[in-house]
Simulated scan of single mutants.
Amino acid sequence: MMPQLLTARVKRPAGRPIRIWVPVLPVLLILSPVLVLATAVAVVACLVYRIRVWRALGAGWRIVSALPGSQFDIEHGRTAVLVTIR
């Protein structure tokens, strides 16, 4: 299943935390020309390095499909960022 929502929360040292909700599907639709170009570049790179194209694209799709439920926590000093993918 493709991720549906990306939630980011930034805790700042002074002030209230910032929360951002990003729906993934509209962003993918807007960036689809870039996605097509990136896929073409990936196919060319697979051919140059003699990697099977379908296996490489399948592995990429499996990575994207495994993202829902992931959480990334980054802390640096008094600032913290939490990213959740649903």
Rank of each mutant, 00 (worst) to 15 (best):
V53M: 06
A38L: 14
Q4L: 06
L6T: 13
A14N: 13
Q4V: 02
V81L: 12
A38M: 14
G60A: 10
M2E: 14
V24A: 10
R78Q: 11
F72P: 00
R55G: 08
D73L: 14
L25S: 13
P17S: 08
L29K: 09
T7Y: 10
M1I: 08
V48W: 02
V64S: 04
G69K: 02
V10I: 14
I74E: 05
R50V: 04
V81S: 00
L5E: 02
R52E: 15
Y49M: 12
A40I: 09
V27Q: 09
S32G: 08
L29R: 15
V36Y: 07
I85F: 09
P23L: 07
I18A: 12
R62H: 04
M2K: 06
F72Y: 09
E75F: 00
A14F: 12
T84L: 06
G69E: 04
L31V: 15
T79A: 09
M1N: 11
V48P: 00
T7A: 06
S70A: 11
L82C: 05
A42N: 02
V43P: 01
R19I: 12
P3E: 09
V36E: 03
M2N: 13
I51H: 09
A42S: 08
V44L: 13
E75M: 01
W54F: 04
L25N: 11
P23C: 09
V22S: 15
C46V: 08
A56D: 06
V64C: 07
P3R: 13
R62E: 05
R12I: 00
V22G: 03
M1R: 12
G77V: 06
V34M: 14
A8L: 11
I18S: 05
L67C: 06
V36N: 01
P17M: 12
I51S: 12
P13W: 10
Q4G: 08
P26K: 05
T39H: 02
Q71E: 13
I51P: 00
V36Q: 03
G69L: 11
G58N: 03
S70Y: 11
T7V: 10
L5T: 05
V43H: 07
I74A: 11
V48A: 08
G15Q: 05
P23W: 09
A56P: 05
R50P: 05
V24K: 07
Y49F: 14
A38Y: 12
L28T: 11
V48N: 00
R62M: 04
F72W: 09
R19G: 03
I20M: 11
T39Y: 01
R62D: 02
S32L: 14
I74R: 06
P23D: 10
L29T: 06
T79R: 10
I20T: 08
I51N: 12
A45G: 08
T84M: 07
H76A: 07
G60S: 05
V81R: 01
R78S: 12
T79I: 06
A80Q: 08
I63H: 04
V27Y: 10
V22T: 15
P3F: 04
F72K: 01
A14K: 03
R55A: 14
P33Y: 12
T84S: 12
I30K: 15
R16K: 11
T39D: 04
A80C: 02
E75C: 04
I51D: 12
V10G: 00
V81W: 04
V34P: 01
T7D: 03
